[in-house]
Write a protein that binds this DNA or RNA. Structure first.
Lengths: 208, 208
DNA sequence: TCGGTAACTAAGCGCTTGCTTAGTTTCCCT
DNA sequence: AGGGAAACTAAGCAAGCGCTTAGTTACCGA
């Protein structure tokens, strides 16, 4: 009996909540590693030790490293989409919808910046089939934003030259948060969200 | 005599101009591969065959794969910085400077989208020393844009809440081009540049 | 109490990786 | 002509990779 049962057989540094389920810990460790180093620079041993497992332990729950990326990417896209939809549903006018969508989507990118980074920058490492699946979700996000703009233009609140171009610029501002954000930055998610909502109103000609 | 000299000993598909110098071809092949698959998913064999060399041929000109990334990243940052400076120098007013900077920097991201992708998304795979060197160039870009905004606010042309936040949003719109652009898109660099310049004027409250 | 199933590990397999070594060819300078 | 440096290749090495296999432990229902 070389080890008492209170000491788990972990060698690397944990990057996940020890109280979470094993699948949850694997997803957390993968999000941490993929966001930090990218999919290909992350080894399955990194993920395993981050979750407190041996290298083989990953394969009890996921068939491959790519399957882990897909699970993370799909659930990330789905929760982002859910957030966007609910923000838009909460607003009574296009103006309120745009403000809520920009603020809350930005906050998500800050609070979940590791998942957001995987969602925005790692999806092209998926297999063609998996990639096609998340691409459909990404197009849906784009449509949601463009529809808000179109409704605002229709009722005279917004004035934009091209709603597709403007929607892309709005999403660029939000998505790029996942690139530049670091937890060392002192601004809160709410502050960054409010800033981006204000910038959005300026972009659609409804700044005052 | 197994092969006539007119057939080069290439196995993979070339991704570089055969008339360019060897170093040039290596940089082109590396830019192509890094932009397409990322630094870690690219093998030195990919780069070698893309440049029409054997795997060992890379090491005649570069000491390591990371050194290749650094050469590409540094020269890319330098040419981007040169472009920004010259665009700003050409404008007589802050308004003209902002329009020129946004349009030309955007065009560069489209025309050189492979290099731009490496510049914007691969620099964190550099060694700490090399990373620090390009970070200084990146901060300089940010300052250049913020200074244009500050001058425009000072002379009353622009109206922004916070010049740092607004500069970041402007750069987000430009940088993000390297993420979403694909050569299959039918819009020209000039059109995309003009769109982003117009969006920039709206963001700084000088849209008309 | 015990059989079955699911979660897990130790060990390691086959392959690919970045890079090196030893040797060949090319070309320029005298 | 011929010596030397530079550019290049064939072959391959050590390390690390994703993933598998064989076996152990823990737990749960009958």
């Amino acid at each position: 009996m070389p080890q008492p049962t209170t000491t788990p057989p972990t060698s690397g540094a944990r990057t996940s909540d020890p109280d979470a389920s094993t699948v949850e810990r694997l997803l957390q460790a993968a999000a941490h590693a993929f966001a930090d180093k990218g999919f290909h620079a992350t080894t399955t041993r990194d993920i395993a030790s981050g979750a407190g497992l041996s290298p083989a332990g990953v394969y009890v729950h996921f068939g491959s490293k790519e399957e882990l990326l897909f699970a993370l990417s799909r659930s990330g896209h789905e929760s982002a989409l859910r957030l966007l939809r609910s923000a838009i549903a909460d607003g009574a006018t296009p103006r309120q919808q745009l403000v809520a969508a920009m603020a809350r989507f930005t906050e998500w990118h800050v609070e979940q910046y590791q998942v957001a980074r995987v969602v925005q920058y790692e999806h092209h490492h998926l297999t063609p089939e998996h990639h096609a699946e998340v691409l459909a979700l990404r197009k849906e996000m784009d449509s949601l934003v463009r529809d808000v703009l179109d409704r605002g233009v229709a009722d005279g609140t917004f004035s934009v030259d091209d709603s597709a171009d403007t929607a892309l610029a709005l999403l660029s501002i939000v998505v790029d948060v996942a690139r530049w954000y670091s937890p060392t930055i002192r601004r809160t998610p709410t502050e960054i969200g409010a800033t981006n909502a204000t910038l959005a109103l300026r972009l659609v000609g409804a700044g005052h």
